[in-house]
Design a protein around this nucleic acid. Structure first.
Lengths: 212, 212
DNA sequence: CAAAATGTACTAACTAGTTCGTATGTCAAG
DNA sequence: CTTGACATACGAACTAGTTAGTACATTTTG
């Protein structure tokens, strides 16, 4: 373990990198790529600016590392839901709840994606790791839709990517636009009752759409 | 009219201001608040940086002016649809189509709102002009929902702000996240067929939700 | 002429990135 | 187990370039 005495220094590269990434995630997500300050990140770290460049090469390199790490964190959560064991409608509602809760619990991630969109997803394009991720979600949805249609539960044959977009849009918007929306309509979207109502709402909307 | 000869100067404050705002809208929307460069805006203008500070005081002042102008532009479009003349379902579908087309046609506006959210809507809070805008939409929706419920067309009593959010989320997300979404799923959301399909999709989803 | 509008050239502060030197860990040879 | 040599990890201070904002002079307009 890397304990550090009053003044002595202990080398702990892994910890140093993680420390930088943690601080940088917060900084980039609250100030954007251009608005983030490397000096400000360095200050909040237990290490120095030198180390940021030592490990990540440049400000953009650090930003990309932050982005990749954020996407990687989700990957794990999405996998093990075992949705094929459930009835189609139940499976869909479970998937929607999971997406909803994920976005609600990870505003930093949502903000980073917003920032990335402002930059035309330029960094994401360069990272192959990120692109291969969400593909599995589509296959999961496709399976649910097919089963539901065959069983006569869903009357509509919908495109799985479209359904995924509809779900994402609602869950993402609630978090990404909570400040402007909250300001205009004087409503706190993080309020407990509102969260419950919205979680049910998007599920009902998608299900009723597929059944109609 | 402010024609300018080979070398002579003609004062035209109105035109100068509009020119700056137009260029600034583009710059802020593609680079964000911190990423935008005042010098870059000045260059693309027929006037100088001096004028930006003369009329808008500061970079933030210019940003706020851009934001206010963008919101003001929508106000006019939303008003005259005469939705109360239509049957509830028809009125709702018309409103949804209008919102959809507006966001699709104004990516700059969508991006500015995204940027404003990254900054916790801090500038919007200071501008009273902006806050009073979207209130009318809610009243419109409330009227439609009430009529629809009374006529037995809608079986669900929904909150008008929630319905507005559901519509906005879908229409906004398609534009705000088109780059990351497009990159991950290799799908062009500005494609003609996709636009048509999505426009119908959000309308069907909202209507079927209210009818269920 | 006075006030409003504009252009040129400048500056003070900031900021990404670097230079140079030091400390720490490791591993092989004694 | 100690020594010492080499690579990795680190810190403080510096730099070159950028950027928001300004001082001052000049022109236009009423």
């Amino acid at each position: 373990m890397a304990e550090r005495g009053e003044n002595g220094r202990k080398n702990d590269p892994q910890q140093t990198k993680e420390d930088i990434l943690l601080v940088a995630t917060e900084e980039f997500s609250t100030h954007g790529l251009a608005g983030a300050r490397v000096d400000s990140i360095a200050e909040k770290t237990r290490t120095s600016k030198r180390m940021i460049y030592y490990y990540f090469g440049s400000k953009e390199g650090l930003y990309l590392a932050v982005l990749e790490q954020s996407y990687r964190k989700i990957r794990s959560l999405e996998s093990d839901l075992h949705l094929s064991d459930l009835e189609p409608e139940e499976a869909l509602r479970t998937l929607i709840s999971t997406t909803f809760d994920h976005d609600e619990a990870n505003p930093d991630f949502v903000r980073l994606v917003s920032i990335e969109n402002i930059h035309h997803a330029a960094h994401m394009l360069r990272s192959e790791a990120i692109r291969d991720l969400n593909v599995s979600v589509i296959e999961t949805i496709a399976g649910i839709l097919e089963r539901g249609f065959d069983q006569g539960i869903f009357r509509r044959k919908a495109d799985p990517i479209d359904i995924h977009m509809m779900i994402s849009a609602f869950c993402f918007f609630r978090v990404s636009n909570r400040y402007t929306f909250g300001t205009i309509f004087r409503r706190n979207l993080s309020d407990g009752d509102t969260i419950e109502r919205h979680r049910g709402m998007i599920a009902d909307a998608v299900v009723s759409y597929l059944k109609s």
